[in-house]
Simulated scan of single mutants.
Amino acid sequence: MVNQAKAHIAIPMGDPAGIGPEITVKSLAKAEIYDVCKPVVVGHTEVMKKALAVTHTNLEINEISEPEEGKYEHGTIDMINLDNLNIDHLEWGVVQAQCGRAAFQYIKKSVELALEGKVAAIATTPINKESLKAGEVPYIGHTEMLEDLTNSRDPLTMFEVRNLRIFFLTRHVSLKDAISQMTKERVFEYIGRCEEALKRLGVENPLIAVAGLNPHSGENGLFGREEVDEIKPGIEMAVEKGYRAVGPVPADSVFYQALQGKYDAVLSLYHDQGHIAAKMTDFERTISITNGLPFLRTSVDHGTAFDIAGKNIASSVSMEECIKLAAKYAPNFRS
């Protein structure tokens, strides 16, 4: 089981045709990563060698079969090689069925390691929806995979960037459908889930602000009834239950106030509301945390960037932050 001072962090390599291998290599070239954790890459050795060559990075690959076998020394990449690609047919920046299948297998293996207690967390690199579809992988993204592979229910996404934490009441649905999901029951439920997630991350007695939907949070029904009829009653239900929740706070100010420390987290009502706030704060350092799983999962919040894959252009800042955040919170997830 994972009981060392430094936690083992699994890093599935991502889509082999995307920037995942490159940003993994660049991140593991940084000594500070090894100061905080024991990173285990799950992927394909030959792809990692290509990434080393492309990035002009001089690191040794140490193939292992179990995390406990790793060296975890700066200058060495400890790697579980699944050898699941025809490397001769691999092309940077191209949708390929074999890459979609391989990316899923890296994630599946990482999940198995986490469920077995051999790693404390997973820090994921980008995967590509088109590649997954071409490879007949029956999931559209990480969250759906993780939900199914762990038999979890509706994982809760949280963004962290600097001093700002953002949860999401709704995810990948149209704005019209998102509004229809903004019921007082759902607001109440999600405030409770947010508090539970924050406490597991080590935030004691958290104060959660719920963002408003309409301009100025509707001005008591002047600009819309959603706050009056659903959002505020849901917050009141949560307060009656003993949760520390306030709002709805106008969305044009609540995220800034949370960044300044007034709130421990904000419950964003729909996808772009929270995404814009986080990414405008610091695009590269916005990291996604998936709560509600049996283990901790962090992720970069960008895609496979096929247009620049294999060109040594991709920044690794987000991946570095992703790994560091996994290491920061991993102790809170140890049994």
Rank of each mutant, 00 (worst) to 15 (best):
T125Y: 04
A5M: 12
L267R: 09
V40Y: 03
I140S: 15
T124E: 04
Q4A: 14
P250K: 10
G292L: 11
I107A: 01
V36E: 13
E284S: 14
V239Y: 01
C322K: 04
A277P: 08
G75K: 06
G218S: 11
A102Q: 10
S315M: 09
R101Q: 15
D35P: 00
T183W: 09
K199L: 01
G141H: 06
K109L: 08
I235N: 04
N62R: 13
F295T: 07
K199N: 13
L132W: 11
F306C: 09
I208H: 10
A330F: 10
L222A: 14
A103S: 15
S268E: 10
M237P: 03
P250N: 08
E112C: 00
T157R: 13
D78A: 05
E63H: 00
V111E: 06
V210S: 10
V42L: 07
K279W: 05
V239M: 11
V41Q: 00
Q273G: 06
L269R: 07
S315F: 01
F283L: 15
R165F: 04
A103E: 05
L269W: 11
V239W: 01
G221R: 13
V95K: 07
A114S: 10
K176N: 13
R225E: 15
F333E: 06
V249M: 11
F167R: 10
A258V: 03
A265T: 12
R334F: 05
P233D: 07
E136K: 14
I9F: 04
E147G: 00
K49P: 00
A245Y: 04
E236R: 12
H89G: 00
S217M: 07
H275W: 00
A51S: 11
V210L: 10
K6A: 03
R285F: 01
E63W: 00
N86Q: 10
T290N: 12
A209W: 02
S253Q: 14
L293D: 06
D83F: 03
H56G: 15
H74Q: 11
